[in-house]
Design a protein around this nucleic acid. Structure first.
Length: 254
DNA sequence: ATTGAGACCTGTCGGC
DNA sequence: TGCCGACAGGTCTCAA
């Protein structure tokens, strides 16, 4: 898509999680994608009009790229971008929790879905001080705090569990306990920030090489399996927090 | 204001 | 084999 123009945009239905914006197809047609970026879990295509196409995969969304003329249509193909490069970029999303919108020039910062987001976890601005400040006084659990996109942007259910395990921190512990009353970091805040960065960097590294499968996680989806920490071997537990499954090792995570 | 529960939607999987 | 409930990687809204 990058440096190509939209020749044609086809919608298979009027909405995903929300309706497509008005004139979605005509607003995109003819526009050049000047760059592709990401903020949290939102994919951002900067357009020659200075507008931005904002996209989210939701739970079950995916993109695939096919050659123009040989593009197959599958169930749940909801958006088809035919590009000037000869690529056909297809958004498929069975559950339709995905999302697309076009945001006007300069309005990205005030878009409802983007304006409240916390720091990017891999940016230098996300450090123990930022995390401690965000968790100060929070009554909720550490796990729930990590899923709060205002605390840190783009962490999801899998990597929240993964990071907590690497940092040896219990998901059940109150979020406020990683900060002093004045919002300064305690030792766990330093460990957690390092763990989040490490787990995400490793995941990106892996994803670049291999498909999504196999024994990829430290704890996620490993209920009753043995803890992988050296010398631990405790049984991984599963708990529900805020309606989401959390996986952790009660033996080594405090 | 913060927090947790429920809703959105379809596919898959395990148990009966 | 077939049906049924539980669950799934996200986010929004609503009520307490």
């Amino acid at each position: 898509m990058e440096h190509a123009r939209f020749l044609d945009v086809t919608l298979g239905r009027p909405d995903l999680r929300a309706p497509f914006p008005r004139h979605f197809r005509t607003r995109l047609r003819g526009q050049l994608v000047s760059s592709l970026n990401r903020r949290a879990k939102y994919l951002l295509a900067a357009l020659s009009s200075r507008e931005t196409l904002v996209m989210h995969l939701g739970m079950s969304g995916s993109f695939r790229v096919e050659a123009d003329g040989a593009a197959e249509r599958l169930p749940h193909d909801h958006v088809v971008f035919r590009m000037s490069s000869g690529a056909v970029v297809i958004f498929n999303d069975p559950r339709r929790f995905g999302f697309m919108d076009i945001v006007g020039a300069g309005a990205l910062g005030i878009h409802p879905v983007l304006s409240a987001l916390g720091p990017e976890p891999l940016s230098p601005g996300f450090d123990a001080f930022a995390l401690a400040r965000a968790c100060r006084g929070k009554k909720t659990s550490l796990k729930a705090a990590l899923l709060d996109q205002r605390v840190v942007a783009g962490l999801g259910n899998i990597y929240a569990s993964e990071a907590l395990h690497l940092a040896r921190l219990s998901p059940l512990r109150a979020a406020s306990t990683i900060a002093t009353p004045s919002g300064l970091p305690r030792a766990p805040a330093h460990r957690l920030v390092a763990a989040i960065k490490s787990v995400l960097a490793a995941a990106i590294e892996r994803a670049a090489r291999e498909a999504y499968r196999g024994e990829r996680f430290r704890v996620y989806d490993r209920e009753l399996a043995a803890c992988r920490r050296r010398g631990c071997g405790g049984a991984i537990k599963r708990r529900t927090q805020g309606g989401r499954s959390t996986f952790f090792c009660p033996r080594c995570q405090r």
